[in-house]
Design a protein around this nucleic acid. Structure first.
Lengths: 149, 149
DNA sequence: CTGAAACCAGACCGAACTGGTCTCATTTTA
DNA sequence: TAAAATGAGACCAGTTCGGTCTGGTTTCAG
């Protein structure tokens, strides 16, 4: 299975929660409770997301975090990038010249770029506002195969 | 970074190599040499790919492996699925009911399906014949950002 | 008929990575 | 001034993955 870290998965859930009312500041306790996650974990997540610029932090006794931008303007891709770094399936498609020993001879390099591009587009096309939409589409019924690829 | 295993990466390179002349049988040594990979690793890969039905194995002294189908009919997604199992970004989008403790309350589940769908489509749309195409598109020039998402 | 070449299978180990926790410092406001 | 909240990074433990090794089986050439 193609994988994103569990932390990233959590991160998206957290962002989705915040997207429910973008104006308010939410503190870590509240988010942790809402997301059914442990406080230290959520704390770490929020910190990272704030450092990346997706959230704005407010310190002090009535502090917390709020979305730095309207939820329509934050894509799933951005959240993933914040928590996992550049999006790409293979090391060589990221920005790491020389990492792959036989980079010049590798016959599939160019093509990976295309594939990654498609994936990035898919991820870019979904905003967290959409994820937060009140009615998640029914799990079945859209004719997708449930399990296999 | 969203990740596929290194083995899977190798697997795609191997399949691409085989796709160069689909008729012939290639033995493990030859493939290993061509792909710049160690023999035991390639051996393992070929075995898995054969077991999954993507390759046909020929035993005996002049044996080896050949593509089970024409390369146009084998998608990248199939290779990934053979080596990694079902394609999905998160555990809950695979077929594992109950794995996620708060599955019923999870607000983003339905949406993930859509995202995964998009990724699967992207992967399904590329055949290994395309990967084996003689002229990999130049790395730059298609306006893609090189690194960031 | 015999031996070499190739595939078949699975066990196994070491290393890298990641998730998650903990501790301590800093900031702000009631 | 004390409490409540974020900020930062170290650190440990568990898991997963890559890669190797050993041994067995099949087929064909000489």
């Amino acid at each position: 299975m193609i994988r994103i870290g569990r932390l990233t998965d959590y991160g998206i859930i957290v962002m989705t929660h915040l997207a429910h009312d973008p104006g308010r500041v939410h503190n870590a306790h509240e988010v942790a409770r809402a997301a059914h996650l442990k406080l230290p974990t959520v704390s770490k997540l929020l910190r990272i997301l704030a450092r990346t610029g997706l959230l704005t932090s407010h310190r002090g006794i009535n502090g917390g975090y709020s979305l730095a931008r309207p939820p329509q303007a934050i894509s799933v891709a951005e959240v993933i990038r914040a928590l996992e770094g550049p999006i790409g399936l293979t090391a060589c498609t990221i920005d790491s010249p020389g990492e792959c020993e036989f980079e010049p001879t590798c016959p599939v390099r160019g093509h990976w770029q295309k594939i990654n591009r498609a994936i990035r587009d898919a991820l870019d096309g979904v905003s967290i506002a959409q994820l937060a939409a009140p009615a998640p589409p029914a799990v079945a019924g859209d004719g997708l195969a449930r399990v296999g690829v």
